[in-house]
């Protein structure tokens, strides 16, 4: 696998965890999208009961796929990081942290 892809996944993971990038919901429940000036990145979960499968695709300005990676054709570590990116992207897009914060606040007020 291209080492730049590994770097990209590392950076996406780090920036997502630190709330530096804004993942958004899409029309597909299992796909989340983040856009930059020239490219967009989508992370998707195609897992089923038997195995985990995560895919990351890079789109250019025209919405065409310029590169992609799947968790079933990369190292165990990278596959795990893809899963982490997906989970964090989903939490960010769905506003999970805000929801948990507000729930805890409500519970503290009772």
């Amino acid at each position: 696998m291209n080492s730049k892809f590994t770097q990209l996944i590392n950076q996406l993971h780090e920036k997502t965890v630190n709330n530096k990038i804004n993942w958004e919901e899409t029309a597909e429940e299992n796909i989340f999208l983040v856009s930059f000036s020239d490219y967009s990145v989508e992370i998707a979960d195609y897992s089923d009961e038997s195995h985990d499968l995560y895919k990351l695709r890079i789109y250019n300005k025209e919405g065409k796929i310029v590169d992609k990676i799947s968790s079933d054709n990369c190292s165990y570590l990278t596959a795990n990081e893809l899963k982490e990116v997906y989970e964090n992207a989903r939490r960010k897009a769905m506003g999970a942290d805000e929801a948990l914060g507000e729930l805890l606040e409500s519970l503290n007020e009772i």
Binding site: L33, S37, S40
Partner: peptide, 15 residues
């Protein structure tokens, strides 16, 4: 602005 336009292209590609 570029990000907004790119996001729209990405979202409508998925739709």
């Amino acid at each position: 602005h570029k990000e907004s336009l790119n996001r729209a292209v990405g979202q409508f590609t998925i739709i």
